[in-house]
Design a binder for these strands. Structure first.
Lengths: 151, 151
DNA sequence: TCTGAAAATCATCCCCA
DNA sequence: TGGGGATGATTTTCAGA
């Protein structure tokens, strides 16, 4: 991975639909070696995929909540809990933490009423959960916008 | 926004580099109207852009930390603080919350040493900050993977 | 709004340096 | 590894239904 690869990653994080020709021009290469590098980055798993970024409000997901969850800390409970999260589409991000809380979710729903429903129907009913603490997001200060690529 | 538009959004969140022909086939349209819809979704800001998804470990960003921050709650402090966050590339996500903490950051760096440096040099020095609490992420349970599109 | 066809652009492969 | 050129896809636009 050299400077050119890093430039490619920067450009494609910025615009994932750049044509290969345009990308090649920006990183100072001609089309063929540029495409070879991109393919290699994909094969190596450095580029994991490409995604359209959709406005949450436009698809009824403008209301976001951060939820701290405490789960009983034995292996089976934790694994079942984390598997269950995969099946709740409203959970758009989940992290297991050291310390407390043991887990933090980011949830995107339409509005407060939708969140109340989700909370009572699907969060409080998860097995092994001992505590659920919801914090409504007032404002997105900084959006996920691709990773910085140094060098 | 009808079912076809929603399908387009689903498909493009899943693979942002789908060719227009393939996309058209999947949503049951021929190429031209499909492209018109995509362009319209882009113009309307429903599709905000396209991004390559890069593996954090591959670019030295495999160590993630959630940071709760408390800031003095007057308008000037808050605005200056949030502006300052925009200039720290390691901060990949930031939310202003109701309640406490007032702000939560997600930070991606290379390792613990890099985080220590960031913490002492750039987080504790932010004006108006009264409390900084760092939680290391043990595991990403669920990655950002595009918003669910209902209907 | 969709379809279909035509023109321009682009991706992709192969081979040479 | 990078470059150039041939070939087949794909995008993009436009007229018509």
């Amino acid at each position: 991975m050299d400077d050119i690869d890093r430039n490619i990653l920067r450009e494609l994080q910025n615009d994932g639909r750049l044509t290969n020709q345009e990308l090649a021009a920006r990183v100072g290469l001609s089309a063929s070696p540029c495409m070879r590098r991109v393919r290699q980055l994909e094969l190596d798993g450095v580029i994991q995929g490409y995604r359209a970024v959709v406005a949450p409000e436009a698809v009824g997901r403008g209301f976001e909540v951060l939820v701290s969850i405490e789960v009983r800390r034995d292996r089976e409970t934790v694994e079942a809990f984390e598997a269950a999260l995969q099946d709740i589409p409203d959970v758009i991000e989940a992290h297991r933490l050291f310390g407390s809380p043991g887990c933090l979710l980011r949830i995107a729903v339409a509005d407060l009423a939708a969140y109340e429903r989700l909370w009572i129907e699907r969060l409080t009913t998860l097995a092994g959960v001992t505590e659920v603490n919801s914090q409504i997001i007032m404002k997105r200060i900084k959006e996920p916008q691709g990773l910085p690529v140094d060098g």
